[in-house]
């Protein structure tokens, strides 16, 4: 098993897989997006309480999920590269960070847009939004560390340590923010929770979640490709790709 795992973990092989899969993933994601949008914006009935503004859920929930998922990818890849020194994992971790950061920012923005009608202000120290904000700071810290260290390999290893430390802290941060927000949040402010969902509301959410997930993998593949080229620029397979790129 390790042998086959090793074959797939080789940068050259993964680059080929990433190149082959990114386009189909993009098209599949686009199709799912279309279905999700039609379902979510047109077919699903308005929420009896929040009215039409609940439809923001179809972009907020998937991006909030991906903001967490991307960090798990970063920490998992980081831990693997620290323990088994797999170069591919360094590339995956570095590629996942900017994606995670943009999904976190998107979750923050859509969350505040969703909350505005209820709260009357753009920002409320709601537990979920606050955790997203701190998660964004973790991403920015990771990316700042990557850019502060010149050597790509040393930067990836330092980033791996930071990502693992971060992932241990995320539940701690989340729980303490929950405890803290229950202290001061007056009962009147309804927490940013998804309303009870009829199936016609739920199906578009699943479609959008799947679309976001596939898009994440497609974007990750594309970013990993350029990371791998930079990491392995002396390798013969990269020179081969460069030669083809030049002749085209």
């Amino acid at each position: 098993m390790i042998k086959t795992l090793h074959k797939y973990a080789s940068p050259m092989h993964f680059h080929a897989v990433a190149r082959a899969w990114s386009a189909p993933l993009l098209w599949l994601a686009a199709a799912l997006f279309l279905a999700g949008l039609v379902g979510g914006l047109v077919l699903a009935p308005a929420d009896y309480q929040q009215g039409e503004s609940f439809r923001i859920i179809y972009v907020h929930v998937p991006s909030a999920w991906l903001s967490m998922f991307a960090y798990l990818v970063m920490a998992g890849a980081g831990a693997t590269s620290l323990i088994w020194r797999v170069k591919l994992m360094d590339a995956i971790a570095r590629a996942a960070a900017p994606l995670g950061a943009s999904f976190t920012a998107l979750a923050l923005a859509t969350g505040s847009l969703w909350g505005k009608p209820m709260w009357g202000t753009w920002w409320v120290w709601d537990a979920r939004l606050t955790s997203e904000l701190l998660l964004l700071l973790l991403y920015l810290g990771y990316m700042a560390l990557q850019s502060a260290i010149d050597d790509r390999r040393a930067a990836a290893r330092a980033g791996a340590v930071l990502a693992v430390v971060g992932v241990v802290n995320i539940p701690i941060i989340h729980y303490s923010v929950e405890w803290w927000s229950t202290l001061h949040q007056p009962a009147t402010i309804t927490r940013l929770g998804a309303p009870a969902m009829a199936t016609s509301m739920l199906i578009p959410l699943l479609l959008m979640a799947l679309a976001f997930q596939l898009l994440f993998f497609a974007l990750l593949f594309i970013r990993v490709r350029s990371e791998l080229l930079e990491f392995e620029q002396r390798a013969s397979w990269v020179r081969e790709i460069l030669r083809q790129a030049r002749s085209r």
């Binding site: 914006l41 039409e52 503004s53 972009v59 998107l106 923005a109 859509t110 847009l113 969703w114 009608p117």
Partner: peptide, 14 residues
């Protein structure tokens, strides 16, 4: 339903 600004800016941003 009056929330157009919020909904469409969310989707546009996405």
């Amino acid at each position: 339903g009056g929330y157009g600004a919020f909904v469409w800016s969310s989707y546009g941003l996405t």
